[in-house]
Each structure stands twice: as C-alpha cells, then as structure tokens.
Amino acid sequence: MNVLQLKRFNLSVNVNEYPVKILDDITLSINKGKINTIIGESGCGKSLLCKSILKLLPVDSEYSGAILFNHHDKEYNLLADIDLQQVRGKIVSLLFQNPSSSLNPVLKCGSQIIDILPHNKKASKSSKIEFALDLLNEVSFQNPMEIFHKYPHELSGGEKQRFALALAIGCKPSLLIADEPLSSLDIDLKHNFIELIYKLKKIRKMTLLWVTHDLDFAQKFSDNVFVMYCGNIVESGTVQDVFENPSHPYTQALLNSFQSLKKDRPESIRGNISSFQNLPKGCNFYPRCDYKKSICTDTSPEYSEVSHGHIVKCYVQEK
C-alpha cells in the first residue's frame, strides 16, 4: 500500500530574481513499512525533496504537482496548509542532517521535548516529564534524567543525533524522513544509530525514507531505492532491481564507479554534473551519457517500466 505519493512535482527556486528549476517532474510512491532510500550525488536536490514533502520551502519558490499522504484511510494533501498542520511532526516527521544546528541552543533538552507534545493535550507536568524520560529511554539514553537537564551544546555528536531522533519520533509519526542522518557520525556511532532506527522502526511500525550518498548503506539496509540525478528521479525499484540490473546509464556509471572503489583503480563518471542554472534541453544526463541518441538532446524522457515496479526515466531502455 502506498503511503506517500508525489505526482509530477516541480519546484523552482528564485535565484537573483530568476527562477531556477530544481526538482523536475518528480513522481514516486512509497510503500508502507518499507525502508526507502534516495541516493544521488551532492547537490542533486535530495535534501530539497525531503523538505518539500513537509513544505519547508525556501522563500519565493514556486511549485506544481501533488504530494499526497495516506494515513488510516484518510488522504492528506501536503501542499494544502490545513492538512499540513495535522501532518507535520504527528504523521510525517523529518530528521535533519546536522543535529547540532537542528536543536535550539538556548533551551534545555527537557523543555524541547515537552514543546513537541501535542499542545491540545493538557497533561500535568509530571506526566509530561515522564513522557520525555520514556522517549529518551527509547532512543537508548542510559541516564535520561541527566540529558533532560542538559543544554544541546553539552551533548556529544552521537547524543545530539539520538536526541534529534527522539524529537522527530516524539509524536509517533508513521513516516520518518531522515536527511543524511549518518553524515556527521563516525563508523561506530553510525552502526549504533542504524541499529537503533531499525529497532524503532519495528516497534513503531514506521515507514522510513532515507537520504544518503552512501551506496553501501543503501544496498545493505533498504528495500526500495530511488536514484536521483540533477533534480530528476532517474531510476527506482527494489534493491535487487537497481543494484543487480541497473537500467539507467547514470545508475550503471554510478555503480561502476562504486565497484571500482573496492578495486585498485577508482573510476569516476566522465564529465561534470550540470549546473541547475544551465541544464541541457533534453535529458539532464545526456552530456555524460555513453548511450545517447539524437532524441535525448531534444526532449526529456518519460517514465517507463522495465519490469514490475522497476521504473526508469530513459529513452535507451524504451523498446
């Protein structure tokens, strides 16, 4: 069952009074209870896509298309402000990349947790504190009371990230979007953090949407993979589909360079990523593509299905 659906979502951001298209024709659907991963190189619009789902857009941005969310047989339109207020934090939650900047520096951790409680809940103070301590315990803090009275800058990097996770899952969301949560952690903490999220996902029956550029992680831990390039989702499907039978030239090149890292001679993808101000007219990838056809320079390809659920946005694969 689909929980989140993006239909032909476009986003342009104003740069120097001039609209620049960042997300182009994003269509994706996310299944309930699965771990979904978005991979792609830096600056391809992954983070912006995550923020757009909760409509945390830059000022003066323009969008079109639809973002729909299903929860308990009710459909929410995430681009409408009325639905959005009900969904943000309570049904869909976002974990940010850098935990030290996503926590308010002047408030104690305890009061930050109490703030996220649904505000119509007029609970007593002791029950609120109990809730906060339970939550801190759940993200495996050994001494929740101590964390409760600390300021964010007194926590270590790993503790900050776990605390940010506690805030994100505080209202029991059914979808957790994690925007590269591992990028600021070292290897050991990374593994602890992944285990923790796994555990929480099982207990709370959450759906996960990860953003990462760590292909290793994507291959090992996810169920579905979306490959992004220059604001497009170029390929999507299950892990097996994408990693064993890559169909888009970009995915092939990406996996090739990923495999080559394990050997002696690393290979990179030929050419440079196009800048958003200056995108090619047709397919965004054609300047770097080895299989380009004449049609690629003129029009952008449509989504086509390679096998069931394995979708690719390329002319090369069309029969």
Binding site: L54, G89, F96, P105, A164
Partner: peptide, 26 residues
C-alpha cells in the same frame, strides 16, 4: 533561516509556539 526553526516547523509547531519557544529565548 536556521535549521532548528525548520525542524520546529517540521515537528508541527505553529507560529506562536515558534515565536515563544524558539525566537524569543534566542
């Protein structure tokens, strides 16, 4: 423009809560 205000928005805080819990203390 800071991330923690965005995070607060993502957690579903409304404008008044953001003003009193995040902006005023800062």
């Amino acid at each position: 423009n800071t991330t923690f205000i965005k995070a607060a928005k993502a957690m579903g805080m409304n404008k008044l809560q953001i003003i009193f819990h995040h902006i005023i203390p800062n």
